[in-house]
Structure formats: structure tokens, C-alpha cells
Design a protein around this nucleic acid. Structure first.
Lengths: 333, 333
DNA sequence: CTTTGATGTGAAAGCGTTTTCACTCTTGCG
DNA sequence: CGCAAGAGTGAAAACGCTTTCACATCAAAG
């Protein structure tokens, strides 16, 4: 025996009004006489009527659902953003369809398509490799799309970020100020805009400002994993580096622990500064110095921006830049 | 100018067939002559037709979307499960509506209701405090619900877990075997079934087996946060404990770092063993010994189980128990 | 009284699919 | 050559809501 669903029609019949009226009271439309409203509400309560959101979505062309594409929920940086997104979404009565992309272009395109098929009202995209194909899909979408904690070199989509160039430059300058001349730049794939177009630029800028020559032997392109960082020590030492800027906290933890395990003292013999200021930075010993980012807020602001876009409100600034900082902990002098 | 949507009707007209036929080819129904299929496919391609999943959901009463209730995406334990869930879901063509509950009963009930309103085909629930009200909602649901990494004392819902009692008992026995007599039990709220009904039982069992009297002064009920753990050191020392079993990795990292910072040597003066075997255990120094759980698999199996339930397949065992292990690292002797 | 403008309500047309049912062709077989 | 059994297709009825439009009612204003 299937559980029976009660529809708006049942309520209308029982309350001796039309479906239109029931719909009005359900949606808080003021054009209903208080007495009628009360009557309808009673029936709704009695029958335990619950509006079917799918039918509503079909009729109104709004699903109050947004899509969120995330590289990996398991990643502390992105999950912090996701938390900010969800909280604000909930505040505005939206739900979130969350999908992991592994920053895999093909998967991203596919996911984007199913999200659009599901008629989401908006999309938040996280991931740093916006391919042409992806950009094309973005354009095709009738739902607004905002990038959170993610950059696209072409700046074609609304986005929320910090000023990565300036932040990295400042972090590296800090290392330089401590007397380091050979500073490693450790990051994930250089195919990602955030690395080659932003972080590396900041790195180069700091070097240039200090009159230090750029040496690509000091640039280490690897995976965003703890293991990858851990196994980097020999190379780092071989290159003669005495400090490193790292583009991801987990990676940085690996780098640092790898160094420590190899007998290199952090920060005395080698300084490390990382990028994302996730919880991780406080857990490891020594605690890691880091660029600080308002992680939760990046997600929250992105979601807020999306709500405006979905309501066709005019927004003054499509690409918002949130403030960053530098947190000195114990992995730098 | 709104972007125009092309509907199944447009395709039917252009291909000079009926909507029914278009629907058939879209859904891979074999009852279509190859020639017709080809013709329709061409038109679909030419018009760039994309089926509207909402309309489809209304007509078919299946949304290929499932709801996932998670305490906090930011938590490494749960986000690992979530990753397993999403991967399997994607494999079976489902999408996930993810919502954070903060293990707040009221929020959980509310979220559950909106999920049901959105006609999700199934629900995966994570959270260890199944209130009566919640249980009542579960019962009301026509979508199957499975618990992942979460226990309900009443065992009324399908679930996927490890044998917490045995695992904790083994972990504590290990501590006892190392000569510890005063072993602290550190966990989150005792209101949670997993703590008072499982972990604590395992703890008591191990003590009893070793002939050690249970002393509730050694039970520390706190928050699942790093900070909470860190500030526990004075109390731990005051109670004369020489070892601790901890119910959460982040909490355990806090405990351990708090101890270390206070000059208590881990593991020489104080041993720590934790519960979830998340990445964290490897990041901290010393690395933490832990009960090992197949995190990803718990999520994956839960999702797989859910697919069966959604298809009305008969499942032999509704409450599945996955194997656990014990990983000795450096926070125990 | 009539007129006017709000206010409250209902009928019915969508929204874009799936699915049932009936119907028309083909086949293969006796 | 006739007929039963598929195979292939279309018409149209759902699915459960929102929204438009027209209509009725009523109070205030003239």
C-alpha cells in the first residue's frame, strides 16, 4: 500500500475553495480574506498537506535549488567555502545540489549539464581551470553562475576571491625580509589559472621588487596532496632553497613534515608559508604561517551575490575581492 | 530577451513524430524503429534539445536526486563519507542535495521536510542523535532513508557502520596492555547514541575484562573541536590519567597538542588513541594511533544500499557492519 | 441610488514530461 | 493465402502546482 499523497486539489475540495485560493495562502499572497485563510490553513493542517516542490518548480519555473560544483568536499579549503554557501543558501530558502568534479574538465561539463537539466536557479562554481568548453557552457546557461574562490583568466563570470597576486607577493616579501634569497614556489598544476596567472605573478613581483632573479628551478609543480609535499624534501634541499611559499595547506603540511622528518629544522633552517589558513595550519607543529582568507565569507558572499543575480537585482560590482591578511605562526621566523 | 527553451514538443514537430516517440528515444526505450530513432536523434542534436528534469520528475515521480543530511561538511570524518556517497550516487546517475544540520534536531526535522517536499528518491542521514520527533519523520517518509556512520539506538532504519563497541574495546584494551590503568574517555555529547550507547560500552567492556573499576571521573564530555581538546590538559592531568581514548580526530589532535604544549610527552607519559582515521592522524606529530574505519566505503556502501532500497530490491541485511581495524602510529607505545 | 475602485475568488490554461491504451503495420507460420 | 503475434507509433490523459484573467462583491464617494 503506497502512502497516499494529498494534493492541493484535496485541500481545495475539503475547504470548499478553489485551488487558486489554496495556492495563495500557501504562498502568503495577501489577497485572501482572513477568514478564508484560516479555514484553508485548518484543512492543510488536518490533512497534513505538503506542497510538491517539483510540481511547483514546473509551474513557476523556479526550483529554489542551486548547483554547487566543488573539486572535492574532502578538501578543507573548499569545504569551508561550501559551508558558507550552504548557510547563506539556507537563509534564503535555497537548497544545494553538491557535486565533486575533481577539477576534471569533462566531468565539470557533464555535471554542469545535469545541473542545468535539473533547472537549478543558479550555480556556484569552484575550480581553477576554466576551459574554453566550460566557458562555452557557462555562456549557454540561463541560470547565473558565480565563481567562488576560483579565478578565470578571462574574468567573464561574476566571482568572489581575494587578491592572490598581492597576497602571495606579501607572503614572499616576508620570506625575503627574513633574509631568504632562494625561495621555492610550490603549487599544484600550472595549468590552473590561480597558479600561473596569479600566485606565480605575485611571487615574481616580490622577487623583482627585492632585486632577486627569478629561477624556474625553484618552481615545484606537484599535486595538492600531503604525500606529494612530504616527498618534496630532497628536491627542495637539492635546489638550495631555504624557504618556500606553498599554494595549499595540506601540501604545505606535507612539505613541512617532510622537511622535519629529514632533519631540517623549521623554521630555523627552512621557512614555510602557506596559502589558505584552514584549520590544518593550527594542527601541525610548528603551526604554519599563512596567508589568511575569509574562507567562510568567500562562500557566503558568493551565495549572496548569486541571490541578487537570480533576482535580477543590479549589482554594482560583479567581481568582488575580499580582504586577505598574513598570519605569522611558527613556521616562519 | 530570454533564452528560448526547446521542448520535447518542438522536437516531435520537427521530426514529424509524436512526443511519445521522442520520449522513447530519449529514454532508450527499444520499441523504436532504428530509422525513426536516427531521425529523432538528429533533430535533438540540431535543436540542442535538453530534457527538463523537473517536468520529467513530475511525470515519472522520480527525481534521480537524493537528500544527504550531514552534521558539517567541514568535518573530515563526515566529508569523507560524503565523498563516498557522491561518487556512488554519480555512478548510478543520482545527484545529491547536501545540507548541514549541525546535529540540531530542529534543523534536521526542517531539512528533512524540505527534502521530502522536493521529492527526493531517497535520503542518507548522518548524525548521532535521532530524536523521537526525527524518528517520526523517518517513518512518515515514503523515500527510503539510510543512516551512514550514524547509529540510532532503536535500529529502526537501515544503516552502515562499523562495530563501535568492539572497536573501542579493542583500542582501550591496547592502552591497558601498555600498562595504563587510568584511561580517560574523551568524547562529544553523551546525548549522542554513538557515545553513550556504543563507545562508552566498549570502553567499559575493556575495563571490565581487565578487572579495572570504571570511574566516571575519567569520562570527559566535551565538544568535537580542536580547541576543546586543547584545553583539556589540566583536567586530564588532575584526574591522573595516563592515556586517553578520544572519539574524534580533531578533538584528539587538540588533546594531544594540548598535552605536548604543557610539557607532557606523548606517548611516553601519556598515550592517545583516536577514532576516525581521517587524514589528520597523519598530519600531527606524533602521528596518532587510531581505530581505522573504511570512511569512504561507509558512504559508498550506504549509497549503494539506498539504490537497492529505491528500486525495491530485496536486501538481505538492512544494517550492515563494515570491518574496522587498529592502526598503531606514534601516539601510543 | 449609481459609480468607481479595490478586494477576494474561481475557472482554466499552462509548465514539459511520461505513460497508458489503442491502433496500424509487419512478419512468420500453418 | 489467412491469421495471430509482435513491433512501432500516436493521442491524450495524467503529474501537482502557479498564474492569468475575468468576474463578483462591497465600501466609499458622488
Amino acid at each position: 500500500m503506497e502512502k497516499q499523497t494529498v494534493t492541493i486539489y484535496d485541500v481545495a475540495r475539503e475547504a470548499a475553495v478553489s485551488m487558486a485560493t489554496v495556492s495563495r495562502v500557501v504562498n502568503g499572497n495577501p489577497n485572501v480574506k482572513p477568514a478564508t485563510r484560516k479555514k484553508v490553513l485548518e484543512v492543510i493542517d488536518r490533512l497534513d498537506y505538503r506542497p510538491n516542490a517539483v510540481a511547483r518548480g514546473l509551474a513557476s519555473k523556479k526550483t529554489t535549488t542551486i548547483g554547487v560544483i566543488i573539486p572535492d568536499v574532502t578538501n578543507a579549503y573548499f569545504s569551508s567555502l561550501a559551508r558558507g554557501i550552504d548557510d547563506i543558501a539556507m537563509m534564503y530558502k535555497y537548497n544545494i545540489i553538491l557535486t565533486n568534479s575533481d577539477e576534471n574538465g569533462g566531468k565539470e561539463v557533464q555535471v554542469l549539464n545535469t545541473l542545468m537539466a535539473k533547472q537549478v536557479d543558479g550555480i556556484i562554481f569552484m575550480g581553477n581551470q576554466v576551459t574554453d568548453e566550460l566557458r562555452e557552457e557557462f555562456r549557454r546557461s540561463k541560470a547565473p553562475i558565480v565563481l567562488a574562490g576560483s579565478v578565470d583568466a578571462e574574468k567573464t563570470q561574476p566571482s568572489v576571491n581575494i587578491d592572490y597576486v598581492a597576497a602571495v607577493a606579501e607572503a614572499v616579501k616576508n620570506l625575503i625580509d627574513h633574509g631568504n634569497r632562494k625561495i621555492a614556489f610550490v603549487s599544484g598544476s600550472m595549468d590552473q589559472a590561480i597558479n600561473h596567472d596569479y600566485r606565480l605573478k605575485g611571487y615574481k613581483k616580490a622577487l623583482k621588487d627585492a632585486g632577486i632573479a627569478y629561477d624556474d628551478k625553484l618552481v615545484f609543480e606537484t599535486d595538492y596532496t600531503y604525500k606529494a609535499g612530504q616527498s618534496l624534501e630532497p628536491a627542495l634541499s637539492a635546489a638550495g632553497a631555504t624557504a618556500a611559499f606553498v599554494g595549499d595547506d595540506e601540501l604545505a603540511a606535507g612539505v613541512m613534515n617532510g622537511l622535519t622528518d629529514a632533519g631540517v629544522a623549521v623554521p630555523d633552517e627552512f621557512e614555510v608559508i602557506t596559502s589558505n589558513d584552514t584549520k590544518l595550519t593550527e594542527l601541525v607543529r610548528p603551526k604554519m604561517s599563512s596567508i589568511t582568507q575569509p574562507l567562510y565569507d568567500i562562500g557566503a558572499v558568493a551565495m549572496r551575490l548569486l541571490t541578487k543575480l537570480m533576482n535580477n537585482e543590479t549589482v554594482d560590482e560583479n567581481t568582488v575581492i575580499l580582504p586577505y591578511g598574513l598570519m605569522k605562526r611558527s613556521s616562519t621566523k
